[in-house]
Amino acid sequence: MTKHKIYTMRIASVYPHYVTKAERKGRSKAEVDEIIRWLTGYSQEQLEEQLEKQTDFETFFAQAPQLNPSRVFIKGVICGVRVEDIEEPTMQEIRYLDKLIDELAKGKAMEKILRK
């Protein structure tokens, strides 16, 4: 079985789109970074290193220092699919990230996005 195309996409190629989406709605790159760090456990330096290394999504999530246990509380629909119903782990992690960025762009408070 072939891997889904998104697994081999470099996070660095998608990251600017996350930032642009957030900034168009008055949010910041720092907030995007905070969301990614919260989800994955990467430090800011580690995140920047992953972006510089052109790491693909599959490797990015596989090497994440500490996936946040609270990510299971992320619910809702992204790309027409409920994130909590996605069975393939890597795809679910990618969609969790997409959902969090969507919540940021929709103006949700960071405390709620980060499930505090």
Rank of each mutant, 00 (worst) to 15 (best):
M1F: 14
K3N: 15
K3E: 12
K3Q: 14
H4I: 11
K5W: 11
Y7I: 06
T8I: 13
M9C: 13
R10K: 14
I11A: 00
A12I: 04
A12Y: 05
V14K: 15
Y15I: 00
Y15M: 06
Y18K: 02
V19Q: 02
V19A: 03
K21C: 12
A22W: 00
A22N: 03
K25C: 11
G26S: 10
R27V: 06
R27P: 05
S28G: 04
A30L: 12
E31Y: 01
V32Q: 00
E34A: 15
I35E: 03
I35W: 04
I36E: 01
I36P: 04
L39P: 03
E45Q: 12
E45S: 11
E45N: 09
E45R: 08
Q46N: 12
Q46F: 01
E48W: 01
E49Q: 12
E52K: 15
E52Y: 11
Q54T: 07
Q54I: 05
D56I: 07
F57S: 01
F57H: 02
E58P: 00
E58F: 12
E58C: 05
F60C: 02
F60P: 00
F61R: 01
A62I: 09
A62S: 12
A64M: 05
A64P: 06
P65W: 00
P65N: 06
P65R: 00
L67Y: 04
N68Q: 10
V72I: 15
V72Q: 15
F73N: 15
I74V: 15
I74T: 09
K75M: 09
K75A: 08
G76Q: 07
C79F: 11
V81G: 05
R82K: 13
D85C: 10
E87K: 12
E88M: 08
P89L: 10
M91A: 10
M91W: 02
M91C: 10
Q92C: 06
Q92L: 04
E93R: 10
R95I: 09
K99A: 06
K99P: 01
L100W: 03
L100K: 06
I101M: 07
D102V: 11
D102I: 09
D102H: 07
E103T: 09
L104S: 00
A105I: 05
K106I: 08
G107N: 04
K108L: 14
M110Q: 09
E111S: 11
E111C: 09
K112N: 13
K112T: 05
K112M: 10
R115M: 13
R115A: 08
